[in-house]
């Protein structure tokens, strides 16, 4: 039993070496496609991270009546907190609001504000929905609560951000899928060429009484070896490249305040995905390459 598996492994490795040029062609096809795929995955991961970080910052303000007391403010805030779609509510009292406004306007203009006998600012509630996509719906619900005088409509900003992010994500998905299909075709073509030289080999195997699985295994090992090395190489290249880029950009998109995905996390994700795809492609290619000729 053991010797059989050792044999399949040994034969698989030997096949890769014996069919040197064909292995090289298939390996190159896998490397190139997985490198491009990996590159677009890196972009996708970062855009995804950016979009969640943008979305998580989405919140809207609701204002109470100017005469409402801080106590009422807290009551209304608690009421909003109990809504199932709300993640958090921050209460900005009249005084806090004034302090903030003074800070924003600067010392000269603050004299103007001091002229008011009464604080003219209403209590402000900063509401953050659990799901950023639901922000408009939550705002509509908050509008109906007794004591709320006004809600600053978050609709336009939110929908603009989401539209952009959705487009970026959709383009990424289409690109990745297109690449996967291309790589499948490239590899299947390479294998189709190699099969021809293997025809005889398989025919002879069958004639001396090899079972289908006995014939299949070395081909599968061969395909998976090519898939494995074809994925390890782009993973290594992309990881090294990204690491230096990450260090160079100090972990942020240049000019934007969004953090890049950390190099370590990204390398692991990329390695898992690309190696898995490489192995699947190899498995598929190895199986396909013998399938047709096993019906002797």
């Amino acid at each position: 039993m053991m010797t059989k598996w050792v044999r399949h492994l040994r034969e698989g490795i030997r096949n890769v070496i014996r069919n040197g040029w064909m292995s090289f062609a298939a390996l190159s096809a896998v490397i190139v496609t997985l490198a491009v795929l990996g590159f677009s995955l890196i972009l996708t991961f970062n855009v995804q991270q950016m979009s969640t970080s943008v979305a998580n910052q989405l919140e809207f303000s609701a204002f109470l009546d100017v005469n409402a007391s801080n106590q009422i403010g807290q009551q209304v805030a608690d009421q909003i907190r109990q809504m199932p779609d709300v993640s958090s509510v921050q209460v900005i009292s009249k005084n806090e609001g004034m302090a903030e406004m003074k800070k924003e306007l600067g010392s000269e203009m603050s004299d103007v504000l001091n002229a008011f006998k009464q604080n003219p600012l209403p209590i402000q509630l900063v509401v953050k929905p659990k799901d950023p996509h639901e922000i408009t719906a939550v705002a509509d619900q908050v509008k109906l609560i007794h004591g709320i005088a006004a809600v600053r409509d978050p609709h336009q900003l939110a929908s603009a951000i989401f539209r952009t992010l959705d487009v970026i994500r959709d383009v990424g998905v289409v690109f990745v899928v297109a690449l996967l299909i291309t790589s499948m075709f490239l590899i299947s073509n390479t294998i189709r060429i190699t099969i021809f030289s293997r025809r005889r080999e398989i025919e002879i195997m069958k004639l001396v009484g090899a079972t289908n699985w006995f014939i299949r295994w070395p081909f599968i090992v061969e395909g998976m070896l090519i898939g494995f090395f074809g994925s390890i190489i782009p993973v290594a290249l992309l990881a090294v490249g990204y690491r230096s880029l990450y260090a160079h950009a100090k972990g942020q998109f240049s000019g934007l305040a969004f953090p890049l995905v950390p190099a370590g996390t990204l390398t692991i994700k990329l390695a898992v995905i690309l190696v898995a795809i490489g192995l699947v492609i190899g498995l598929w290619g190895g199986t396909m390459s013998v399938r047709k000729f096993l019906r002797v």
Partner: peptide, 9 residues
């Protein structure tokens, strides 16, 4: 079909 190998051996 799966017994063919036995014949051929």
């Amino acid at each position: 079909d799966r017994k063919i190998p036995l014949l051929r051996r």
